[in-house]
Design a protein around this nucleic acid. Structure first.
Lengths: 105, 105
DNA sequence: TTTATATTTCCATATTATTGGAAATATAAA
DNA sequence: TTTATATTTCCAATAATATGGAAATATAAA
């Protein structure tokens, strides 16, 4: 991963509404959630939510598909994992004692 | 972890100089690196580096100790792991097939 | 075709972050 | 004590981001 890609992804997550949206989608699984459901669960007005979803989409952290008049958003686990791998790359100066296993999503 | 803590940590990482500093420190291990070494490796002027180190410190992603006239910075693996756990919490709608093990740092 | 629902775009305003030179502070070496 | 090295604080100019109402777009239901 390039550093600009990582900065863009981190910036996309570094805002309370966007982070809340992303976490809901991470928890929702591949079924995803419609924009309207996200807005209602989080109390975010349509224009604001759309602005933030655009940011998450541009950072490739979420994907969307259209179903009728709904737009369904899903988290990109692949992109999240790449970001986490980038943060932890070659960590701990090779001291594997500090690197216990953790779940991958 | 509270959402504001996570947003602060993500915002601290969402900037090219700070992300570069953090990754160098993650890779350096618990020995850490002096501010001046970071500045030289990354080509960041002292005032700018100090500004960014303050941001990372305030977000608790790095810690510092003074050794003589040097200030040595280290990554906080604990805080990084908490942030990653917060992002991936309850992921994949409980579909554990998607949650393979990954290293923890 | 008319009406209702879902989402996005447009826009102006308000807020917050980034930059680096110069001076200040702090410790160590001469 | 004087000088050298390391880091931080101060500052002002510049740049980027967040907000949500109203209008526009798009699909579905009546």
């Amino acid at each position: 991963m390039k550093i600009k890609t990582a900065v863009d992804a981190l910036a996309a997550l570094a805002q309370e509404s966007r982070l809340s949206v992303f976490r809901l989608l991470v928890q929702a699984g591949k079924e995803g959630l419609a924009a309207g459901v996200l807005g209602e669960k989080l109390g975010i007005p349509p224009a604001t939510l759309s602005f933030h979803l655009k940011g998450l989409t541009h950072a490739k952290l979420v994907k969307s598909r259209t179903e009728g008049r709904y737009v369904i958003y899903t988290a990109s686990y692949a992109e999240m994992d790449k970001l986490i791998a980038y943060l932890t790359e070659h960590c701990c100066a090779g001291d594997s004692a500090q690197c216990a296993p953790r779940k991958k999503c």
